[in-house]
């Protein structure tokens, strides 16, 4: 049940395999004022062992995607359409019980606030045991102890941490415990939703370094969600840019930073502060995110776009592969 699914495969075959495939996902939140289209037709796929980043401003739908992949969207939110194929199984069609078994076992979450996701009145060991019990794992107490210790050492913590309570740990240590919990059943996909946003920069490096090493050990894929472009540049292989519930650009991290195509992607990259020069332009992206209750017609970015054309406000651009491995949803790159 807890077998590693990928270890035996040839690296080449693993490279070609799509672990996760999201197709035309729609997630709406039904409010009194109408449906808020938090995720509005998103498609992407994840190869095994790949690190994929999702960036966007708050309200762009990136965290909603994370929760949808785990089927943890609560009312008034609802997955309205689309498919999420995990190792070939469509998660959207599973029963609640079937989905519960997939969580942690095949797809795990490292959430934003570590301090909130650990139970404050339980020792760290018990939090692991609870997870195992939930997945019907019957390991003798001694074997279990061994395994929890191994998991903790794997994330750079002392075995003794198992005996401690969450309040005895620092924020960085708690986040590493969460990573250890997330990998405890060797999932094939780990979703990390702003895993370091509450941490100091040195601790952030430690946590991300830990996440990278366990991910490489397991051969798991990672989806990193956040808005820190620096973190993305240093961690992921490929990057998707979200805007108002849609993916507007997907590219390899080098293409995205070196040659962004979507005007939003270009402005996002241009607004990044650097340590190269103080003369860099201190510039944000003018305007504000559109309302998801009444998204603008056509391209969602047309209200802020410096390169807006006549038909941008009426025709919605489709995400297309305009260069090898570089996808963009913008009329600028469509054949006339």
């Amino acid at each position: 049940m807890v077998e590693e699914t990928l270890s035996a495969e040839e690296p080449k075959a693993a490279e070609l395999k799509e672990t996760l495939k999201v197709e035309d996902l729609h997630v709406y939140f039904h409010t009194a004022a109408g449906a808020v289209k938090a995720v509005n037709g998103v498609s992407f796929s994840l190869k095994s062992g790949e690190r994929f980043g999702l960036v966007g401003e708050s309200g762009s739908g990136k965290s909603t995607i994370a929760l949808s992949l785990l089927r943890l969207i609560k009312p008034p939110g609802k997955i309205e359409g689309g498919h999420v194929f995990l190792n070939g199984t469509d998660l959207v069609t599973l029963t609640e019980e079937q989905m519960r078994r997939k969580r942690l076992d095949e797809i795990a979450l490292v959430a934003q606030g570590a301090m909130n996701s650990l139970n404050p009145v339980r020792r760290i060991r018990d939090q692991f045991i609870l997870a195992y019990k939930d997945h019907d794992i019957d390991v003798k107490r001694s074997g279990l102890e061994e395994r929890i210790g191994d998991l903790l050492t794997r994330v750079g913590l002392n075995r003794e941490v198992a005996n401690m309570f969450p309040h005895e740990l620092s924020g960085g240590m708690k986040q590493r415990v969460c990573i250890a919990l997330a990998i405890s059943l060797s999932p094939s996909v780990i979703i990390a939703d702003e895993p370091t946003s509450a941490l100091d920069v040195v601790v952030q490096w430690q946590v991300m370094d830990t996440l990278r090493s366990v991910q490489e050990d397991l051969g798991a894929s990672v989806i990193l969600i956040g808005h820190d472009m620096g973190l993305m540049a240093q961690f992921v292989d490929r990057l998707g840019v979200m805007y108002a519930g849609k993916l507007v650009e997907i590219a390899t991290v080098r293409d995205m930073f070196g040659d962004p195509l979507h005007p939003y992607g270009q402005m996002l990259i241009a607004s990044l502060p650097s340590l190269e020069s103080r003369k860099a332009r201190l510039e944000g992206i003018p305007g504000i995110t559109p309302s998801l209750l009444n998204p603008p017609s056509g391209c969602p970015f047309h209200t802020r776009c410096p390169k807006v054309m006549d038909h941008c406000s009426s025709v919605t651009p489709i995400l297309q592969e305009v260069r090898p491995d570089h996808w963009v949803a913008c009329h600028l790159y469509e054949e006339a």
Partner: peptide
Amino acid sequence: RLLVGSIPLPDPDLPWEGE
């Protein structure tokens, strides 16, 4: 030096050394 080395710079070709 540790602090500067821990900043994830928005350029995939620059190193992220941390500790």
